[in-house]
Design a protein around this nucleic acid. Structure first.
Length: 573
RNA sequence: CGGGGCGUAGCGCAGUCCGGCAGCGCGCAGCGUUCGGGACGCUGAGGUCGGAGGUUCAAAUCCUCUCGCCCCGACCA
């Protein structure tokens, strides 16, 4: 590609609304352009990256026997009504009516459509197992789209669906995907980890996420330094604190004026946070949830939802808190009514905690579960934090932020049962197809690579997904230089090297800076000086130094360099 | 959904408090000089000031409504 003809210009100014490096750099490098919040055009340079991401995904999906198809982006609402997600999913699903007044939705995912296909096209165990996949647009109306391609509303996702006769088959399909995903993300060059994730309460039996490390990630992962455990904070467990064997002391009311926060109480009474019990209030529909947790811990709402088997959980209002007899700021379960009391294990294992007295300005010392109040449910609902002990080996865990670039999920028969997607087994008996679903964010993977590979000058693409292998710059207006660069451009192309040729009539500084910004891994520059020496300057984007190499045989040399760089990203085995 | 901020030329911004010719930098076009890390000079094109309504002799500026975009929050009472 000749840059003089390239559609899209690089820009010097950082866009005012771009926060993340990937967002800023991809806009500046003319790879993406926003149309609206969370909606982007992929410009020619950006689309080349996405095409490479997709090509790698194709190769690896085909490798495990996946068959590509293409399911529609616009769905009739019928199938979504059959699985009831039409009613369960909120405003993030776009709904509209066609001209005849039929309910329609824009695809957020394709489980329903796959299950629908099964009804007509799979009726026998002989037709299973199968893996189907596609790369298709999704629309999810996120409450807060932000961060360029990392969190968008319209995006392309690779989603695949495994179809098996039983759990054992699903296990095989799941593992095949796990292997394919490892190969895919390795080939992207991403620094990532596979972690345990929330399976949700709806039938899924196992789910894992592929998390790429980034300080701008929206997820927090707990990691055991020994490699024994890694999980999303949404579900991360930790080795529980040892149970206290202290004597239960008599309950004692103490005045705590103006100490309405747990930290304030601990400071005022001069006790550590671990010796306090704090109250957190939720409404699960009409049910009041009174949660008690150790003062130093935070609630993990996902764990709480799972423990309670509810999907709808919102913070209670001040009025609702007062209605059960609790006093906000000075609350404890002692003496409250009409509330489901959930006690975190941290509190159940502790003794003699400071808690609220349900009286403005007062707390109690030495509260104990079972003696002073009863728990309706004792469960682990605390968010794991850095320093908490690995549930496997007991080593203190660390936390890291990460971006979810893929997930694999054992769905089971949830969708196939609801939609009646059954096959006949060897005994002629109808059985629901056992499904798995597996996603990869295409644009997000590309943007995540930028998050991981950039400096203050621009992007440093891994060669596997770089828009071009090399940038070729002609330096100066010397006609010999231009003629030589033109010739080299042709030679490189013939050698199978993808080249972005900066043939613009620009000053050297402009060309160097744009080459750095766009971030192709190899840079070749020819000037009067190098030409006189019969050489080309060769510089890697990942390296600060450049070397001059002979013009003679340069195309073959670069080709070898490209192959070598690609080989480094090949998964082992 | 709650709170805050911002919409002025392709991009980044000033002007708004205190109403009175719509500006600056980058980019863009032309000419000249320059040419290995975002050059310089001169000339020029480009904006119904997000939109609608109102107040006024006069509105980017004041008032009302509306649309869009961004940030924080939406567990610790």
């Amino acid at each position: 590609m000749r840059m003089a003809k390239l559609f899209g210009r690089t820009v010097r100014e950082v866009p005012a609304d771009a926060e993340f490096p990937s967002h800023q750099l991809m806009v500046r490098a003319a790879m993406i352009r926003p149309l609206g919040a969370g909606i982007y055009t992929l410009m020619p340079l950006g689309y080349r990256v996405v095409k490479k991401v997709e090509a790698i995904i194709h190769e690896e999906m085909d490798r495990i026997g996946g068959q590509e198809l293409l399911m529609p982006f616009v769905h009739t609402a019928d199938v979504w009504k059959e699985t009831e997600r039409y009613y369960q999913i909120g405003p993030e699903m776009a709904r509209f009516e066609d001209r005849a007044g039929r309910d329609m939705v824009l695809a957020m995912t394709h489980e329903e459509v796959v299950a629908d296909l099964l009804r007509t096209d799979v009726n026998s165990y002989k037709q299973l197992p199968q893996i189907v996949y596609h790369l298709q647009t999704k629309w999810r109306d996120e409450p807060r789209a932000r961060g360029g391609l990392i969190r968008v509303r319209e995006f392309t996702m690779k989603d695949s669906y495994s179809l098996d006769v039983d759990e054992a088959g699903l296990e095989e399909s799941y593992e095949a995907h796990a292997e394919a995903y490892d190969r895919i993300f390795t080939r992207f060059g991403l620094d990532y980890i596979k972690v345990g994730a929330d399976v949700g309460m709806m039938g899924g039996s196992k789910s894992e996420e592929y998390m790429a490390f980034s300080p701008h990630g929206e997820d927090v992962i707990l990691i055991c330094p020994n490699g024994d455990y890694a999980a999303n904070r949404e579900v991360a467990i930790y080795q529980q604190f040892p149970a206290s064997d202290a004597e239960m002391l008599p309950l004692e009311e103490v005045e705590t004026p103006n100490a309405s926060t747990i930290q304030g109480v601990a400071d005022y009474l001069d006790v550590p946070l671990e010796q306090t019990a704090k109250a957190v209030f939720f409404m699960a529909g009409e049910q009041f949830i009174f949660l008690v947790i150790r003062g130093d811990l935070e609630v993990n709402e996902t764990k709480l939802r799972n423990a309670l088997q509810v999907s709808d959980l919102v913070p209670a209002t001040t009025e609702q808190i007062a209605a059960i007899g609790a006093v906000a700021g000075y609350a404890s379960p002692i003496g409250v009514h009409d509330a489901t009391v959930v006690v975190d294990e941290s509190v159940a294992k502790a003794r003699n905690l400071v808690a609220g007295a349900n009286k403005e300005g007062f707390h109690v010392r030495n509260s104990n579960v079972g003696r002073d109040y009863e728990a309706d449910l004792i469960a682990d609902v605390a968010a794991a934090a850095a320093g908490h002990l690995c549930p496997v080996c007991g080593e203190p865990m660390v936390t890291r932020r990460a971006i979810e670039v893929g997930n694999i999920f054992k769905l089971g028969t949830r969708y196939t049962e609801k939609l009646g997607a059954t096959y006949l087994d060897q005994n002629g008996k109808a059985q629901p197809v056992v499904m798995g679903s597996y996603g990869i964010g295409v644009g997000r993977s590309a943007a995540t690579a930028v998050e991981q590979y950039h400096d203050d000058k621009g992007i440093k693409w891994p060669i596997s997904i770089a828009p071009f292998h090399a940038s070729l710059l002609s330096i100066g207006k010397d006609e010999d230089v231009i003629a030589t660069t033109d010739a080299l451009y042709a030679q490189l192309g013939a050698a199978g090297v993808e080249v972005l040729y900066d043939d613009r009539n620009e000053r050297p500084g402009v060309k160097f800076n744009d080459a750095d910004l766009i971030g192709n891994p190899i840079r070749l520059s020819i000037s009067r000086k190098t030409l006189d020496a019969g050489e080309v300057e060769l510089k890697l984007r990942s390296d600060d130094n450049s070397i001059n190499v002979p013009l003679d045989g340069i195309a073959g040399h670069v080709r070898e360099l490209v192959d070598g760089m690609l080989a480094e990203l090949q998964p082992v085995g």
